[in-house]
Design a binder for these strands. Structure first.
Lengths: 103, 103
DNA sequence: GGAAAATATATCAAAAAAAAAATAATTTGT
DNA sequence: ACAAATTATTTTTTTTTTGATATATTTTCC
């Protein structure tokens, strides 16, 4: 958000702050959230790139469609391990995964 | 291993192959092992850099000494999540973690 | 060489994640 | 608008990871 917009919003009585602030996350928690979010997105994009359904994707990595749905959202119940293994299973390299995580 | 050494070993009747081959790992499994290994090493090095014991380190990240010992070995029973959270907790950045993982 | 500190290993209960399966909701194609 | 396909959500069960604790082993330092 640029400072013009911020000024206008604040002038109009809005409180303006980051999501992290709002959710009251420590920097570590925030980094973790970001990593998970980006891995989730990478997973989604990989799958779309392959033009296959969550069902087909799930079969490929020997899991179930519901878990793919959760993984692509970065749901709390999905581990980093699961996301990373999934990405590897659809052809992502260590480097690609690292790049996604570092964003 | 250079090809000279390999030749000498094979001439002497040794089978020469990679650890991955020996353990019969798929490329994905191998990548996973490598990531875990490197995160484990990063964790160890961070701690040594801080010149603190596993005990002190454990207190800092709210876990126990035995789990730090396991994490620094990259034991199977330690999740990626745990290693990444631990690294973040001792000041590693997303980028540092990514770099370690990509090695 | 021996005590103290640090690290490694083992066990068990509790918590978290995964698989499995059913089904609801949404999207896509006709 | 409707049927089929896809994705999202929920619940239950099983497996894995974690924390807690005790203790064995190794390292450090005097």
């Amino acid at each position: 958000m640029n400072s013009e917009k911020r000024k206008r919003l604040e002038a109009a009585g809005w409180k303006v702050g980051s999501v992290d602030e709002f959710l009251d996350l420590t920097p570590e928690e925030s980094a973790m959230v970001a990593m998970r979010f980006n891995l989730a997105k990478a997973l989604y994009e990989r799958r779309r790139g392959l033009r296959i359904s969550q069902e087909a994707f799930a079969r490929r990595i020997k899991t179930t469609q519901p878990r793919i749905a959760l993984a692509e959202k970065g749901a709390d119940s999905v581990s980093l391990d699961f996301m990373v293994r999934s990405l590897l299973a659809v052809g992502a390299s260590k480097k690609e995964i690292a790049v996604a995580m570092a964003r």
